[in-house]
Amino acid sequence: MSILEADSNRLLQAVLALLKQKDILTDQEIAERIASTDSATPARGAMMVAKAWVDPAYRALMLRDGAQAAEAVGIPMRGLPPLGVLENTDTQHHLVVCTLCSCYPRAVLGYPPFWFKSAAYRARAVRDPRGLLAEWGTALPDNVQLRVVDSTADYRWMVLPLRPAGTEGWSEAELAAIVQEGDMIGVTLPTP
């Protein structure tokens, strides 16, 4: 039988047993990584976005080195790929896709939404991005350049959306509460 036909659970158990037998990983390390992956949610990214909206120094750090900015608010990034942060402005909007597979900044956004891995999203994000955004109810003015970022290699990307009007004087916690997963992928815009 080829490895492709093997029962995936039995294969996983066999690989885990080998990793432990060869002292490459311990049960504790595996449990810690699973707990860390499971505990990541879009609320982490939203917290970073809200902080960047109120703190110019943090914003600069986030744009220079997303992983350092994540670490600075207590998100563990050790051993993970670099995190790139894409800044939306009055004249440019970013949309993130991984056409090859499902690269996603899990440390700051958690598990990707089901549609992020779909062939339809991956194909249309590069071919008809404005049509795709329209279906999400996201209309970009004609003078805004759309930049589709195809995440193919060693970085993970998140979008730093524009702070919406009508949120003047809001606290960081209030701001974080309006930042949704899709806003940090670029399919939607935060709304107060």
Binding site: V126, R127, D128, P129, R130, D142, Q145, L146, R147, V148, V149, D150, S151, T152, A153, D154, Y155
Partner: peptide, 24 residues
């Protein structure tokens, strides 16, 4: 590794002038 920008309408013969696809 480089970030390289491509003209989106040129890649697909559809889309809005000025839009880009940026790829590692």
């Amino acid at each position: 590794l480089y970030h390289v920008r491509f003209d989106q309408p040129s890649l697909w013969q559809q889309g809005q002038q000025g839009d880009a696809v940026v790829v590692e």
